[in-house]
Design a protein around this nucleic acid. Sequence first.
DNA 1: AACGCCGCCTGATCGC
DNA 2: TGCGATCAGGCGGCGT
Length: 281
Amino acid sequence: MPELPEVEVLARGLAPLIRGRKIQAVRVLRARVIRPATPAGFERSLLNATFRGLSRRGKYLLFRLTKNRKPFILVGHLGMTGRMYLLPARSPLPKHTAVGFALGRENFIFEDTRYFGRLTLDQTSVKALGPEPLSSEFTMEGFAGDLKRSAQPVKVKLLDQAVVAGVGNIYASEALFRAGISPRLAACRLDRKQIRRLHRAIRETLADAIKRGSTVPLRYSRRERLFYYGQSAAAGNFYAERLRVYDRAGQPCRKCGTAVERIVQAARSTFFCPDCQPASS
DNA sequence: AACGCCGCCTGATCGC
DNA sequence: TGCGATCAGGCGGCGT
């Protein structure tokens, strides 16, 4: 599922492909994913607008557009199963296309099988985000303060986008493993040293995943001018093969050989090594 | 106001 | 074999 690294890799790959291109038609096939939920207003805002840039904030994509020289932002979120890519205009729209933008020779497709994703002109959610983990705004002091105030298990707290933006279920488990901290430990019980290790581990885990192209196979075919962002398990050096604990229940810890455990916290799977991430200390 | 819980979705997998 | 139940989970909304 797309988290910060996946969204970052997507933004970097997609930006040069859409920059400067004008939206000649808008097709909303699933009004559920757009805000405001009325296709008419959404389509009116975007029709004849031009993509100027694409960046990321947390797990959100920020499309910069202009229309009649006026700049505005389209906010995107991939939810659980969202994908965005260009497709030749002659290709049929994929089954779970939520929104399609006609850009001339290609359509820009937002496909999402579960329709948990979003495309919106409203920036409320983005403004509520906490610090970007890979920027200097993610400080030890701020992070420590947030953890001290919460009795929730630290793993659950890491999923709070107001504490640190962009960490999801996979990288929360991975960062805690890297820091050698039990996911069950109450956030407020971490000592200074653990907080420092976790702060560092979050940054390293995310940066490493970006460097390696994220967990999701992602390719760009220059010849076909196609951008693929898919989940086919096509082999490659993707980060999924390097995950230390996530989805590895029962398999040996890569560090010590102890069987990785799976527990459920806040209705989500957590994976950890009971030896490398002891409950005490 | 922190926190728990539900609903939204579909496809894959599981059990009978 | 077939089919219904269960699971996966980000996030907004709502209740306590």
